[in-house]
């Protein structure tokens, strides 16, 4: 246990250093700020009821950028080690494949969450400086999004053992961005066929529900705080489903030839 913690910390430190030293991160940051600034520029022309519009653009931008960043960061964790063969000196250490998997998930989760928090803070600062405020539900939005990032990292890392990096990124982005649409289609199908249809329930269980972790619209429209038990339930769902994904990845990686 202590070993696993030490291994995870070592991998996270190195992973974070690498991400910070790459330039791709900064592009996303600048892009989000530009989008928010662009949206707020309308204010200069005196359009009414603009606050909601600017907020909507800002939170949509954060959401999209965070999802893309999360998928890209998680998808490269293990395949990149394989490609550049750094996996050899890594796995030459007395660590198990499960420990590497867990450490890489933690690295992706931590790095992506950090990116998200930085993005959200900068955007919030920008909104505040424009005189636009958010309600306390913003805190719940942050928390829930972080659960979602952890869950998404687990799925992407698991898929990286089965798909090429390009296929993984594509499929993961479709699943992440499409999850809202899938959920609505499923609900409609349930409506039509009844709630006890087995294949529909199976599909519902298997398909990812990433959109559950997005409260951005509620922030935009200044909702009151959601009941905390709802967040608890979603945290539980993220944990169970995320562990399920990691298990799926481990089952493949356990016996895979390295390199």
């Amino acid at each position: 246990m202590m070993r696993t913690v030490q291994i995870t910390r070592a991998l996270m430190t190195a992973g974070l250093l690498e991400t910070v030293r790459r330039k791709d991160l900064y592009v996303v940051l600048i892009l989000t700020v530009l989008l928010t600034l662009g949206a707020s520029a309308f204010r200069v022309f005196g359009v009414q009821g603009l606050e909601i519009f600017v907020k909507d653009v800002a939170f949509t931008a954060i959401g999209v950028m965070t999802t893309i960043l999360t998928v890209l960061i998680a998808a490269r964790q293990i395949p990149e080690e394989m490609q550049r063969r750094t996996i050899y000196p890594l796995m030459a250490r007395p660590i198990t494949r499960g420990q590497l998997l867990l450490g890489k998930w933690a690295t992706a989760f931590f790095t992506a969450s950090l990116c998200f928090v930085v993005l959200a803070s900068i955007t919030l600062g920008l909104l505040l400086s424009l005189g636009i405020t958010v309600k306390p539900i913003f805190i719940q939005y942050l928390l829930l999004k972080i659960f979602g990032i952890g869950w998404l990292c687990a799925m992407v890392i698991a898929l990286s053992f089965y798909l090429t990096p390009a296929a993984n990124v594509t499929l993961s982005l479709i699943l992440a961005f499409g999850s809202g649409v899938f959920n609505r289609l499923l609900l409609m199908a349930h409506w039509e066929h009844g709630l006890d249809v087995l294949w529909l329930n199976l599909l519902y269980g298997v398909l990812p529900h990433y959109d559950y972790f997005d409260m951005s619209k509620k922030v935009v429209f200044d909702w009151d705080l959601a009941p905390w038990w709802v967040l608890g339930v979603l945290a539980g769902y993220a944990l169970l489903s995320g562990m399920g994904w990691l298990l799926v990845g481990w089952l493949r990686f356990r016996k895979q030839t390295i390199g």
């Binding site: 030293r21 550049r84 063969r85 750094t86 050899y88 000196p89 030459a92």
Partner: peptide
């Protein structure tokens, strides 16, 4: 262990 093609993280 010293692998045949030893490459280390560029960053």
């Amino acid at each position: 262990f010293l692998p045949e093609t030893a490459l280390y993280s560029p960053y």
